[in-house]
Amino acid sequence: MKAILKTFALTAALSIVSAAGAVADGTGWKPSGPIKMIIAFAAGGGADTQARLIADDIQAATGWEVIPEQVTGKGGVNALLALKDMPADGTAIAMVVTESLGYNAAAAGNAGIVPSDFAGLTTTAGFQMGVVAKADKGWSSFADTIAAAKEGNLRFGTMSPKLSDLAFLLGEAQGVEFNIVQVAGGKAVMNGVQAGDMDLGFMAGIQGKGVASGDLVNLASALSEPLVQTPDAPTLADLGVQFNADGYFVFVAPGGMDTAARDALTAAIVEAANNGKASAMIEKAFGGAVTIQGSELDALLQSDYEAASELMQAVQ
C-alpha cells in the first residue's frame, strides 16, 4: 500500500513538474541554443532599454538564454539585413520599428528587404508622434505656426526620410515651405528644438514630460488618431495630409519559421511586454503595451510597405 501511495505521489509530483515546464515554454518548443536578439536602436535610449528588459524578462520566465546585440543604422535596414540570413529556428530575432519594414525597406530597394522575407512576431508599443514646438514660440494652435511660417521659412526637425516627406506634404497642404532638417533620432530633434536650431519638429513620445510641464506644445498629431496627451490637436488628416506616421516597435524573425517556434517566441515577448519588468517601462515611456500579432501583424507590415511607394510618389 505504502509503495503504491509512494508511486502515486511521485507520479503526481512528476506531472506537476512537467506541466509547469510546459507552461514555462509555451507550446513546449525550446530553442536549440542561445537566442540572439538584434536591437536596431542606439544603446541607452528608450527603445534599447525596452529591448533589453524584454530580453531579461524572457530569460527569467522561460530559462532560454537571450543575448542582445546592437545592429544600428539606416533606419533598421541594417538590422533586418543582419537578421535575414540567420537560421529561422528561433535562435535569432530582431527588434525594429514598423517603419523599418515599411518605408525604409521600400526606399532601400537595392538592399532586397521585403516583409515576406520575415516572420512578424508581435508589436510591443506604439508611438505618440506629435508635431512639437517650444511653448515660448507663443503658438497656441497650428494656425499660429502657419502664420509664422508665412513670415519666413521655419525649420522643421525630423528623424527619418518618411517623416521628412510628411513634413514636406504638411507644408504643401498649408501653402508654406519648411526648411526640413533631418537628424538622427528623436532625442536630436528634441535637442534641436530646445537649442533653437529648429522651430518645430516630430517627436515620438519624448515630448511627454515637457508638454505636461507646459514648456512644449503638441501642435498636431502625426497619427491617424488624436494624441492621448493633447486630444484637441488636429491630426495630419485634419490638416490636409492623407498620410500618417502611425508606427510601432516590432519583433521579427527570419521568414519561413516553424509555427511552434514563432508562437512560443511571440507568447514570451507578449508576456514580457504586458507583465514583465519591461511592461512598467513601456507604460511609462510609450503609454502602454500594444501587441499586434499573427495575421493581423503580417497584414499591417505588408500594407505599410505598399503605402510607402505612394508617399514617395507624392513628394516627387
Binding site: 544603446a43 535610449g45 532625442k187 537649442a195 512644449l216
Partner: peptide, 17 residues
Amino acid sequence: GGFNPGPSVFRLGGGIG
C-alpha cells in the same frame, strides 16, 4: 548612451521645465 556631451548637458531643467 543617455549622456550626450555638448551644450545641452548644461541646460537648466533640461529645457523640459
